[in-house]
C-alpha cells in the first residue's frame, strides 16, 4: 500500500499535472473573458486546434518557435474577430457558431496540414520548438524543485497570465465593463459604453489565449509536431474549468490543475484498475464539478431570496 501511494503521489505525478493542465488553463483564461461578457463559448476546442496548427506552420516557415507563437497569436485575433462577427454583430446562436467553429477547425487543419506538409502530417519535418527552462536555485529544493524545474517556458508564462488576467478582470475599468456587458448590458449602455464593443474585445482576447494554448500544445508540450485532432477535447475541458471556477482566473486555474492531476492519477492507477475505468476519471470529475456548481448556484439564489424577504419584513 505504501509503495502504491508513493508511486501515485510521486513528483512525476505533479509534474504531469502541471504539464497537462497548462494548455487547458491557457484556453480557460480566454474562455472566462467571453463567459464574463455573456457569451457561451464552446468553440475553444477549434481555436486551440487552429492555434496548434498555425503555431507549427509559423515555426516551420520562419524556422523560429517565437514566430510560431506570434502567428498563433495573430490567428487568435482573426478567429476572435470571426467569432465575434457572428455572435455579436449578427447575433447568431453562440452554441451553433461554436460547434461550427470546431468542425471547421478540424476540416481546415486537416486540409492544410496535408496540402502543406504532405500525407504524413508535420512529423518528419524538423520544426523549431520552444525551450524548456532550467532554474538552478530550484535544484536545491527536493520534492518541489523537481516538480517546478525543467518545464516548458509556457508553464511559467501561464502563471503570469493568470495573475495578469485576475488584475485585468477585477481591477481595471475594461475588465469591469466586460463583466457588466455580460451581467447588465443595459446599465453599461446607460453609462455610455457599448456592451457589444466589450464582447468584441472579450472574443479577441479569448482567441489570443486559445491561440497560445494551441501553440503551447504543439510547440511547447510537444517538440514541434501537429496531428489532426490533437486538441482532443481540451477546449471543452477548459470550458468546464471556466464554469467550475465561476470565471475567476485563479479558480479556473485551480480547476485546470485538478483536471491535470486526475489525468496523471488515471495513468498511474492503470497498474491497479482497468484502464477503461481510469479513463472515465476526468469526465467523472466534470460531472461532479457541474453538480457542485448547480448546487452552489441554487444555494446562492436561496440566500439571496431569504435576504430580500428579510429586508422587506
Amino acid at each position: 500500500m505504501d509503495e502504491i501511494l508513493r508511486h501515485i503521489f510521486s513528483a512525476g505525478t505533479f509534474n504531469q499535472m502541471l504539464r497537462s493542465a497548462t494548455p487547458v488553463a491557457l484556453a480557460a483564461m480566454g474562455g472566462l473573458l467571453t463567459e464574463h461578457a455573456g457569451i457561451m463559448n464552446i468553440g475553444m476546442d477549434g481555436m486551440i486546434l487552429m492555434g496548434a496548427f498555425i503555431g507549427v506552420l509559423g515555426s516551420y516557415l520562419c524556422a523560429s518557435a517565437a514566430m510560431g507563437v506570434a502567428s498563433a497569436v495573430l490567428l487568435g485575433v482573426a478567429v476572435g474577430l470571426f467569432f465575434a462577427l457572428f455572435v455579436v454583430k449578427f447575433k447568431s446562436d453562440e452554441f451553433i457558431i461554436g460547434c461550427a467553429l470546431n468542425t471547421f477547425a478540424a476540416g481546415l487543419t486537416a486540409y492544410l496540414s496535408r496540402s502543406i506538409f504532405g500525407l504524413s502530417g508535420t512529423s518528419g519535418h524538423d520544426i523549431a520548438h520552444l525551450p524548456t527552462v532550467h532554474l538552478d536555485f530550484l535544484d536545491a529544493i527536493p520534492f518541489f524543485g523537481e516538480i517546478l524545474n525543467d518545464n516548458s517556458f509556457f508553464i511559467y508564462l501561464t502563471w503570469g497570465l493568470v495573475a495578469l488576467m485576475w488584475v485585468f478582470v477585477y481591477k481595471t475599468p475594461c475588465g469591469f465593463w466586460i463583466r457588466a456587458a455580460g451581467e447588465k448590458p443595459e446599465t453599461l449602455r446607460t453609462a455610455g459604453i457599448s456592451p457589444e464593443r466589450m464582447k468584441w474585445i472579450a472574443s479577441i482576447l479569448c482567441g489570443i489565449c486559445c491561440g497560445l494554448a494551441g501553440a503551447h500544445l504543439s510547440l511547447g508540450y510537444l517538440n514541434g509536431s501537429f496531428v489532426e485532432g490533437m486538441s482532443n477535447s481540451r477546449g471543452y475541458i477548459a470550458f468546464a474549468c471556466v464554469i467550475f471556477g465561476a470565471a475567476n482566473p485563479a479558480k479556473a486555474y485551480i480547476a485546470a490543475l485538478m483536471f491535470g492531476f486526475f489525468d496523471a492519477l488515471g495513468y498511474r492507477l492503470q497498474s491497479y484498475i482497468s484502464s477503461d475505468l481510469t479513463s472515465i476519471i476526468p469526465y467523472l470529475i466534470t460531472v461532479v464539478m457541474m453538480v457542485y456548481v448547480v448546487v452552489r448556484g441554487q444555494r446562492k439564489k436561496t440566500t439571496l431570496r431569504t435576504n430580500t424577504t428579510a429586508q422587506k419584513e
Binding site: V227, M230, N232, Q270, S275, S279
Partner: peptide, 10 residues
C-alpha cells in the same frame, strides 16, 4: 499503460 486515444501525441 493504455493511452485510450490514438491521435494525441501529448
Amino acid at each position: 499503460i493504455y493511452s485510450n486515444t490514438y491521435d494525441d501525441p501529448a
